[in-house]
Amino acid sequence: MAMASAGANPEWTRPDQRLPERRPAEGATPPPPAASTWHRMHNAVGVFLLAYGVTSLVGAALLWGDRRKELAGYFGAGNAGALLVAVKAAEAVLLAVAAAGIVRRRDVWFVPALAGWMAGFAVFAVLDVFDGRWGGLLEHLLYLAGFVVLLFVSYGLGAKAQVGSGAAVRASAASGPGGDGGEGEPGADGEPRRLTRTQEFALAALNRLPHR
């Protein structure tokens, strides 16, 4: 009987026919979007990274001889040219990563760019100590401290954006057709993750800064 029924209705057994899609039940709401960590002030952080990277590359191109002589004081004249090319190539990669972070609005992409420049300043600071270049040591330590602060600020802005986006997600879920006005269950789809201790510390320090 089953085979006869299938033969009487060939449309049910055609392999090229798509099955009907299941429609969501009435009153059901789609899951809210995930919390974002991009803050509007991340644009300023990204612009600074772009400006610094472009200035460094253009300055090296215009003052190639001076930059090569500076590296020769650390590593010798024989390796200065190749090392300068390698350093500027690495800076170009860091610049591209920072630019991609702005375009894609992903603050996490600022981390490798900031960490790369921080590592470079730290290496030169150590070399300054061994060579007794106290003026260069002070300069590199100031740059290193500035990029550490910038990384900390970017991290705090990400935590602040995550908190604000999480509040918007909960409000959207509560005001939906199926919402009851509550906070929602923790761990539900779209619910932002809890802040880590480091994020809480960065956010607290950022909130203590004077606001105009």
Results as ranks from 00 to 15, higher is better:
Ala2Arg: 11
Ala6Ser: 09
Gly7Ile: 15
Ala8Lys: 11
Asn9Met: 12
Asn9Gly: 06
Asn9Lys: 10
Trp12Gly: 10
Thr13Trp: 09
Pro15Arg: 06
Asp16Thr: 15
Asp16Cys: 13
Asp16Asn: 15
Gln17Phe: 13
Gln17Trp: 10
Gln17Asp: 11
Leu19His: 11
Leu19Glu: 15
Pro20Ala: 15
Glu21Thr: 08
Arg22Gly: 07
Gly27Leu: 02
Ala28Arg: 00
Thr29Leu: 00
Pro30Thr: 00
Pro31Ser: 13
Pro32Met: 09
Pro32Trp: 06
Pro32Cys: 05
Ala34Ser: 05
Ala34Trp: 03
Ala35Asp: 07
Ser36Ala: 14
Thr37Gly: 08
Thr37Asp: 10
Thr37Val: 05
His39Gln: 04
His39Phe: 06
Arg40Phe: 12
Met41Pro: 00
His42Ser: 07
Phe48Ile: 05
Leu50Met: 05
Ala51Gln: 09
Thr55Arg: 14
Thr55Met: 14
Leu57Cys: 10
Leu57Ile: 15
Val58Phe: 13
Val58Arg: 08
Ala60Gly: 10
Ala60Cys: 10
Leu63Trp: 09
Asp66Tyr: 12
Asp66Val: 14
Asp66His: 14
Phe75Lys: 01
Phe75Arg: 02
Gly76Arg: 07
Ala77Cys: 02
Gly78Val: 05
Ala80Leu: 14
Gly81Asp: 15
Gly81Val: 07
Ala82Tyr: 12
Leu83Tyr: 05
Leu84Lys: 01
Val85Ile: 14
Val87Met: 12
Lys88Thr: 03
Glu91Cys: 03
Ala92Arg: 04
Val93Asn: 06
Leu94Ile: 03
Ala96Ser: 07
Ala99Pro: 02
Ile102Leu: 15
Val103Tyr: 04
Val108Cys: 08
Trp109Asn: 06
Gly116Asn: 06
Gly116Ile: 07
Gly116Met: 06
Phe121Ile: 00
Val123Glu: 08
Phe124Thr: 11
Ala125Arg: 04
Val126Leu: 15
Leu127Gly: 09
Val129Arg: 12
Phe130Cys: 14
Arg133Pro: 00
His140Arg: 12
Leu141Ser: 06
Leu142Lys: 01
Tyr143Pro: 00
Leu144Thr: 02
Ala145Glu: 06
Ala145Val: 10
Val149Thr: 05
Leu150Lys: 00
Phe152His: 05
Leu157Glu: 00
Ser165Met: 03
Gly166Val: 05
Ala168Cys: 05
Val169Gln: 12
Ser172Ile: 00
Ser172Glu: 07
Ala173Leu: 07
Ala174Glu: 07
Gly178Phe: 01
Gly179Asn: 10
Gly181Arg: 02
Glu183Met: 13
Glu183Thr: 14
Gly184Met: 11
Gly184Ile: 11
Glu185Arg: 15
Asp189Tyr: 01
Gly190Cys: 04
Glu191Gln: 08
Glu191Lys: 00
Pro192Lys: 11
Pro192Arg: 11
Pro192Asp: 14
Arg193His: 08
Arg194Met: 09
Arg194Ile: 05
Arg194Tyr: 04
Leu195Trp: 13
Leu195Phe: 13
Thr198Leu: 15
Thr198Gly: 15
Glu200Asp: 08
Ala202Leu: 14
Ala205Thr: 10
Asn207Cys: 07
Arg208Val: 07
Leu209Asp: 03
Leu209Tyr: 01
His211Ala: 12
